[in-house]
Simulated assay, not measured.
Amino acid sequence: MKMIRKASAVWRGTGRDGSGALSSGSGVLSDTPYSFKTRFEGDPGTNPEELIAAAHAGCFTMALAFGLQRAGFTPDELSTEAAVSLDQDGAGFKISRSALTLRGKVPGLDEAKFLELAHDAEQNCPVSKVLNAEITLDARLEP
C-alpha cells in the first residue's frame, strides 16, 4: 500500500519580514499563518517544528496503540508530547532532536512490557524513521 499526503506553503516577502500560509490536502490546515515571528518569537500561528512535533507525537502514539493491540492490550489512554529542537547549524538551522514524553494507562500491562512496546513504536513509526535527529523517549505506565 502506498499513500501520498500533500500540503502546501505560500510565502510572500523576505525571510524575516515576510509571512506565509500553510494548507493541507485534508483541509485541517487552511491558509494557516506562519512567519519568522511565529517560528522564533512566539507570535500566533504555527511553524514547521510544531507541525513535525504534532506529526511525531501522533504517529508514535498510533504505532504504540497498534503494538498494544497486537500484544492483546487495549489502552485506556496514551498521551504523548513531542518536543522538537531547532538548533543553529552554521549559517542555518537544523532539527536536532525530538523528545517524546509518553504517559499511558493500560489495564493489565506491566511496566517492562509497556516500555518494550513503547521503544518498538519509537523506533518504527514512520515519522521516527524519516527524522534524521536524536529521538528520546520518556515512557511511564500510570495506574
Rank of each mutant, 00 (worst) to 15 (best):
F93C: 00
S24E: 02
P48E: 08
R97G: 02
P33K: 01
G42R: 14
F36V: 09
R39G: 02
E81K: 08
L68W: 01
A99T: 10
I52V: 11
L64F: 11
G45Y: 13
S26D: 15
L86R: 07
R39F: 00
A53H: 04
T46C: 09
F93S: 00
K37V: 06
E49R: 03
R70N: 06
D87H: 05
T32N: 08
D89V: 03
E81R: 09
T38Q: 09
S35V: 08
V84G: 03
Y34A: 09
T38S: 05
L68V: 03
S30T: 15
S98I: 01
G20A: 00
G58S: 15
G20P: 02
S85L: 15
D87C: 04
A57K: 15
G42D: 04
T101Y: 03
P33S: 07
L86A: 09
V84P: 13
A82I: 10
G67H: 06
R103S: 06
M62V: 14
F73P: 01
F40N: 06
R97P: 03
Q69I: 04
V84T: 14
D87W: 00
S26K: 11
A71F: 08
G25Y: 00
E77L: 09
F60D: 05
A63M: 15
E77G: 08
Q69V: 03
A91V: 14
I95Q: 00
S96E: 01
A71G: 07
K94L: 00
G67C: 10
I95L: 12
